[in-house]
Amino acid sequence: MNRALKHCAAATVMVVASAGVMAAGYGDARIVDPAPGWDHLWREVIIDITVIGILFALMTAYFIWRYRRVPGGPTVGSGPTLSTAAAIGWVIIPVFVFMADDFFIAANGWVLWNSYRDVPADRLEIQLESGMYSWDYTYPNGAHTQNQLIVPAGKPILLRMTSRDTLHNHFIPDFRVKEDSMPGRVTYLWFLPKEAGKEHIVTCAAYCGVMHSYMAGRVIVKTPEEFKAWYEASGTAAKKSS
C-alpha cells in the first residue's frame, strides 16, 4: 500500500510537472538531451519491473514449495472461498497498485518523450533522403554527403527525413534515436553530438529489401572549427557543381 501511495503521488507530480515542461519548453534555450535521459529512465523502469517480477516469482516459488503434496498430507487443495468483500478487495487493491505503477511509468515516459520531440531552436537542420540502400544528406548551404553525416560537436542536429522508395529507419544506437522515413511524408528526429573526433554507427532499422542489413552509415563528429572549414568548402563546391 505504502509503495502504491508513493507511486500515485509521484505520478500526479510527474503529470503536473510534465505539463509544466510542455508549457515552458518553448523559447527555453536550455538543451535537454534525451540520450542520457533515456539511460536514466531505462534504469528506473528496469528496476521497477525487476522488483515486480521478483515479487511474483518468489511468491510462486514459495507456494510451489510450501503446498507440494507430501506423503500423508492432504490430497485435495483447500483454497479459500472468498466472501464478496474479499473477492472485490482482491480486484480493487491490485488494480489500484498496478495502475499507480503504470501511471508512474507513463508520466516519466512522457517527460522524456517531450525532450525527444521538442527540438532546441538553435540547431543545424539537415535534409535526409533515404533510398535503397543509402542515406543522402543535404545541408542548408547545399552541401551534400552520402552515408556520412558530418556534424559539429555541441550543436543539436535535426534531420528532416523522407524516402525515395521503401521504408527506412535512421537508427543511431549511440544517441538512442530512430525514426522511419517514407515516401509522401516528412518525419524528423534530433540528437546532440557531444564529443568531437568520435564516429557513431547509423544503421537501418526498417526492413527495406534485400540489402537491408548493409544499409549503414556514420555520424562523424568534428570540432566546431573543423566542421566550419569542411562546411564552407563543401558548400562552395556544391554551388559550383550545380
Partner: peptide, 17 residues
C-alpha cells in the same frame, strides 16, 4: 514485464525494431 519498457514511447525510440 519486458513489454513494459516497450510500451513506453520514449524508451521504444531506442528499443523498437
Amino acid at each position: 514485464l519486458t513489454g513494459i519498457p516497450l510500451a513506453v514511447t520514449s524508451l521504444t525510440v531506442h528499443l523498437a525494431r
